[in-house]
Amino acid sequence: MPMYQVKPVSPGEIKIDLPTCMYKLPNVHAQGTSCDEHALQNGEVDPTVKVLEARQDDILKRLYELKATVDGLTKTVTTPDADLDATTLSQGVSATVFKGTADLDCLLGKDLGALRDIVINANPSNPPLSLLVLHSLLCQRYRVLSAVHVHSSVTVVAPSLLSCLGPRHTDSYTRHRFELGFTLIWKDVSKLQMKFNTQNMCPIEGEANVARFLYRLLGAEPQDPVLATQMDSWIDTAVFQLAEGSGKEQAAVLRSLNGALGRSPWLLGQEFSLADIVSACCVLQANNCTSAPPNVQRWLKSCQNLGHFNCAYELLH
């Protein structure tokens, strides 16, 4: 049945302003589609993809360049010895816990012939257990000359505090045979204080911050920024809410510790870290080890089994 012809309702060539925020799709009704499909099937790459790939390459290249610059900068910042290869440093501080070979020259500045002596002023009423644990770890890594002194601002100090760094080293009469000095001074200070290089460095205050400094000497801090942040966060939680917090806060921290330790053996996962040291010491010091939840108890037991906590346990009992 023949149809009659009708004039188009709208003119065929209408210009429509399409919104730019949307993808552009080729007109499905358009004539040439079949031809494009054909081209792709032949293994030819869409020029737009090529452009995209080129752009990605460009970005990656720029990132590598940036990394190189940053590496160069770290090299100049951390090592006064320009001839020291920065790559050895980044390899040295590998993620394997307590096996990294941190270079004291890099971390503490160049040796001028003096013993690098770390001086810690602590109040005998609040012995810094975590630092004692770190001290025993440092002793495994370096030849450490440990000394305990009593400042004249303190009159009486318990004998256990005087022997808390272990027996005197047999070589202690020759100071230059040691790589690192660890001098603990029992003193009437309101806040724990560490002094290392009084010329170029202000004193570091607070047990957690000193612990971070000492931990870095072990060259074992996590390289992954996420893990590093988690570690810092656990340390802060432990110090501010467990050691200094109210009963309520302490209970909350113990709950969250319990949760985290249910998922993994250590706070940061598979690796023992400073987060475990500081948190465990805070739990021990808060003296609620027996009332602690099961995962925390198990974790404390594992900490104790490592052997580094002996000095802390000796002070508590």
Binding site: G113, A114, L115, H149, V150, H151, S152, R175, N197, Q199
Partner: peptide, 21 residues
């Protein structure tokens, strides 16, 4: 007057290094 017990003992070389710094 402040002092430590036992008394702090440094070596001459260390003293020089501190002065050098």
């Amino acid at each position: 007057f402040k002092f430590l017990e036992p008394t702090l003992r440094l070596e001459y070389k260390e003293g020089l290094a501190m002065l050098k710094a």
